[in-house]
Amino acid sequence: MSGAADRPADLKESPSQTAGPYVHIGCLPNHAGLGGPWAEDLGARPFADDAPGTRVVVTGCLLDGTGTPLRDAMVEIWQADAAGRYAGGGAAGFARRASDAETGLWRLETIKPGAVPGPDGRIQAPHLTLWIVARGINLGLHTRMYFPDETAANAADPVLGRIEQTARARTLVAEARGDGVYHFDIHLQGEKETVFFDV
């Protein structure tokens, strides 16, 4: 116990614990039907209605190792604006969604992000960053969603380029469903297991 005051703190990150089955109570209380004091849940709208950019809809499902949809998960999205800029000091570009209690689907109306500066002057292809928590997940899972109509940008993306098995890189590209709708299933396990990142 000696010397603690003499040197800079060398603490360990608080260990993660599962968000459990009732994460919606704490993070999406209106969705959870609690009523309560808040007009809307945090992350209900990622951008103001008049934010410039192309409107897109992203839908998705989280599937466990047996192919069963998770119906108690929470997905958080963090993304740049249409010009590829992250909010400096605000929450624009942040969204939160719950897996539907019956179908497991989540749905986000947002704007398509622009390309974002990457390391060493390289450019990152337009993408959403996702963070997933649920019962049975001990440490939140980081992943990314890329757009299928950005073939050239995706091919040059430095993060997709880190994935040695190119078949696995495809797990990060959404499926175009037309009219600006993209569908992105996340497989926690199995042959189609999505790539998760140690960021």
Binding site: W78, A87, F197
Partner: peptide
């Protein structure tokens, strides 16, 4: 049934990870 079996992949952090709401 909810645990990924592949090792997570690391990469040099970018603005997507170092910034936040």
């Amino acid at each position: 049934s909810r645990s990924p079996r592949h090792a997570p992949i690391s990469f040099p952090q970018t603005l997507s990870e170092t910034t936040g709401p």
